[in-house]
């Protein structure tokens, strides 16, 4: 069963409400809002997983708390605002969700937010990879 959490549904609707060119502006706002990595990761780049499918170097790390709430951390260079924007959408959209809720997010969520035309379908694949790898880390933490 897949289910789109309210937070991601809200982000999707925000994009869909805009004209194509304004969708890029909103994506840039997300890119600018990507939080800095917590210090414990900045000193330990080895903890981070590289998302190979993205053109720009982007790294993620997923923590699952005892309450099963997922925390996604991501970093990408400022020269790669599109990738930063994708990561930021997921960081904000997944915030506060439980691991099961994250696993239930539809895999085609990136294709539903109306960016394919403005950004190109090929580039959207990077966001699918980010979501896929996030889920995989969640599963790995669950199993541990």
């Amino acid at each position: 069963m897949t289910h789109l959490p309210d937070s991601l549904a809200q982000i999707r609707d925000d994009f869909l409400d805009l004209e194509q060119s304004d969708r890029l502006v909103l994506l840039l706002e997300f890119a600018n809002e990507l939080p800095e990595l917590p210090e414990r990761f900045r000193d330990h780049p080895d903890l981070l997983e590289r998302v190979e499918e993205c053109q720009a170097p982007v790294y993620i790390f997923v923590e699952v708390g005892e309450d099963t709430v997922v925390h996604l951390h991501a970093t990408a260079p400022k020269e790669a605002p599109t990738t930063r924007g994708f990561a930021s959408i997921l960081v904000q959209g997944l915030a506060g969700l439980t691991s099961q809720q994250v696993l239930d997010v539809p895999d085609d969520f990136p294709q539903t937010i109306g960016l394919s035309e403005a950004v190109s379908p090929l580039r959207m694949r990077g966001m699918n990879a980010l979501l896929g790898r996030t889920k995989r880390q969640v599963r790995a933490r669950q199993a541990a």
């Binding site: 994506l27 720009a56 605002p81 190109s120 090929l122």
Partner: peptide
């Protein structure tokens, strides 16, 4: 650019954007 949003983060004054994909 490779990145479709890079222009929006800042560009040479007066420059227009042409994207290879779009």
């Amino acid at each position: 650019d490779e990145d479709v949003l890079l222009y929006e983060t800042g560009h040479i004054p007066g420059a227009v954007k042409i994207d290879w994909h779009v």
